[in-house]
């Protein structure tokens, strides 16, 4: 494979990874923007979402890669799987906020962050203990269509992943920028106290942020399964850390920033794996995290978070 084809191939791979990280990063950014809280539970909401997607597809009679669908039935199955996964993951996020984080809203210090670590651990181990430690073959009805561009290969699933991710992100962007609730969200991110005084129901804003973030993470989990053809209880940790790095890189609290950061991190992972060594990928990504935090803490597109003194 020539260098330019290699580059193209890794760009395709990187964009797919990036789409997934971007969806996940949006959840970090939405919650951080409003609560200034790093939500470690988000790591494993993504993982659980991946399993929900798997079970939904299986319920619709799709097992492994044996059932191939095309046309309207495929679109129907995909829409159902996506909607069910996103709704369930979103509800999981709401449940986490309601039960474990709201009571700690006004507690200073690391208590809320520690709670999210605990929740993350609980989710992780529930899946481990019920589903088992072996990775699961992911149901995938996509026909194995692919296009050759030189020596590089663009598969149908990649195009689909990009489309899902772009649609969801555009939807979120317009929701945040145009809708009344989106305006309330931005107001709360600027100054929760002032927003409250102007009649914004901050509790509802926070619930919505958790719902949207977790729903997007669920979508990311589904995409993970469709992309790699497997899922497992351990996928949350690495993906979560990379997505958080993406959020910080783009500027935490900043919705377009999370998308940009996701794509950059995806590309770095793909290129790093190709041209350096897969074993060092995480080291490279964490070095980026540290460098960004130290030299440009506001990220590429600027940080948006409440100004608490």
């Amino acid at each position: 494979m020539s260098f330019s084809d290699l580059l193209l191939q890794q760009t395709i791979n990187g964009l797919s990874l990036g789409a997934m990280y971007a969806l996940l990063a949006l959840g970090f950014t939405l919650v951080y923007g409003i609560l200034e809280l790093i939500n470690f539970a988000h790591f494993n909401v993504f993982m659980v979402g991946s399993f929900i997607g798997m079970w939904t597809l299986q319920l619709m009679g799709i097992n492994g890669q044996a059932v191939i669908m095309t046309g309207l039935p495929l679109i129907g199955v995909m829409v159902v799987a996506l909607v069910v996964t996103m709704l369930s993951s979103g509800l999981l996020g709401v449940l986490i906020e309601r039960l474990s984080l709201r009571p700690l809203r006004d507690v200073k210090g690391p208590a809320a962050m520690i709670t999210t670590i605990g929740v993350s651990y609980v989710l992780f181990n529930i899946i481990l203990l019920t589903v088992g430690a072996d990775s699961k073959n992911y149901p995938n009805p996509l026909p194995p269509i692919q296009f050759a561009i030189g020596d590089a290969v663009l598969r149908l699933r990649e195009i689909l992943i990009w489309m899902i991710a772009i649609l969801l992100m555009l939807g979120l962007h317009f929701f945040v920028q145009r809708s009344k609730m989106g305006k309330a969200m931005r107001a709360t991110a600027q100054d929760p106290e002032a927003a409250r005084m102007m009649g914004v129901e901050v509790d509802r804003v926070i619930i919505i942020a958790f719902f949207l973030g977790s729903a997007l993470a669920g979508a990311g989990g589904l995409i993970f399964g469709l992309y790699y053809n497997f899922t497992s209880f351990i996928i949350g940790f690495t993906a979560g850390l990379r997505a958080f790095t993406a959020a910080v890189l783009g500027g935490i609290g900043n919705v377009p920033g999370a998308m940009l950061g996701g794509v950059i991190i995806g590309l770095i992972e793909a290129m790093g794996g190709q041209f350096i060594a897969t074993a060092w990928t995480d080291v490279i990504i964490f070095s980026i995290l540290v460098l960004v935090l130290v030299f440009r803490p506001a990220g590429l597109l600027g940080r948006v978070a409440p100004n608490k003194s």
């Binding site: 605990g118 609980v122 989710l123 992780f124 181990n125 203990l129």
Partner: peptide
């Protein structure tokens, strides 16, 4: 699992 529950 117990560790996670203790934290929460």
């Amino acid at each position: 699992l117990i560790f996670g529950q203790i934290l929460v």
